[in-house]
């Protein structure tokens, strides 16, 4: 396993996501707020988060990772990005 310059620090992922959600919903967000709760995104728009993460952090989110629970909070999304970026480095693709 090598470290990669493609990897984004978890803090940076969270900062980006908080900004994205604030822009999108017009309210303030913390890392643990329920993204789909009141004042948040409707489920119908959950894919916007997937598209945003893929475009911004160069990951591909497919198959079993496409679960609403993985996107429920900023914290969980940053964990997902970290896991996918790490898997990408290792070339396991899992």
């Amino acid at each position: 396993m090598t470290t990669s310059s493609d990897r984004t620090a978890p803090d940076a992922v969270q900062t980006d996501l908080v900004q994205f959600l604030t822009r999108r919903t017009g309210k303030d967000w913390t890392a643990d707020d329920d993204v789909f709760g009141s004042g948040g995104l409707s489920s119908l728009h959950a894919m916007e988060l997937v598209v945003h993460l893929e475009r911004t952090f160069g990951v591909s989110i497919r198959g079993g990772d496409l679960q609403k629970e993985n996107f429920r909070t900023v914290q969980r999304m940053s964990e997902l990005v970290e896991r996918l970026q790490t898997a990408g480095d290792g070339g396991t693709g899992a």
Binding site: S43, A46, M47, V51, I61, G63, L66, K68, F71
Partner: peptide, 17 residues
């Protein structure tokens, strides 16, 4: 593909594999 993934994300599509 975007629609299929949306359905998967929301638990509305069984054939992920």
């Amino acid at each position: 593909d975007h629609h299929v993934r949306t359905a998967q994300l929301l638990g509305a599509s069984p054939a992920a594999d």
